[in-house]
Amino acid sequence: MSRKRPEPMQVVKQRRDATLNALVHGVPYIRFLGIEFDRRGDELTGVLNFDDDLIGNPFLPALHGGVTAAFLEVTSIITLSWMHLFPHIESGAIDPEDMAAGNLPRLPRTIDFTVDYLRSGLPRDAYARATVSRSGRRYASVHVAAWQDHADKLFAQATGHFLMPPPLDGSGD
């Protein structure tokens, strides 16, 4: 038995990027904060593009703690949703065009979210990466870390619990 011939790279990339864009750009609040996502395979990095409206302390100046919390929460939800959807993106069960037209899948809902502020957020871009510690049928636990200039010097981290949407294929996965 010979294995199935891999799909052309452009087809794979186009499908993944189109789905991610539809997911991220479909949420007004993510656009409001100016958050984008970098993708390497199934790994995502949230990017918070700096804007003066994100300032919380104009004297330092520093990012607003609420912006930091929101950025970490958005990164957690998108990463969690992405992990949840990925197999269905690959199988072709999810149509990116349908999603871009406004037919978004149900997103995980936050149960609780705890943010640790390690140093003040500087008035510049920030990055965040979330790790799904556990994702069960109903509940998921996520850890997320954010940095600015140095990836090993976090300015904030958080853990959160989320209520997962029902599985897309109707199975008990």
Partner: peptide
């Protein structure tokens, strides 16, 4: 509307509540 986290229901995003 700019703070909506779920476009289908129009519910405000948790992040805005955090702020």
């Amino acid at each position: 509307r700019r703070l909506v986290g779920d476009p289908k229901s129009g519910v405000i995003h948790g992040g805005a509540v955090s702020a």
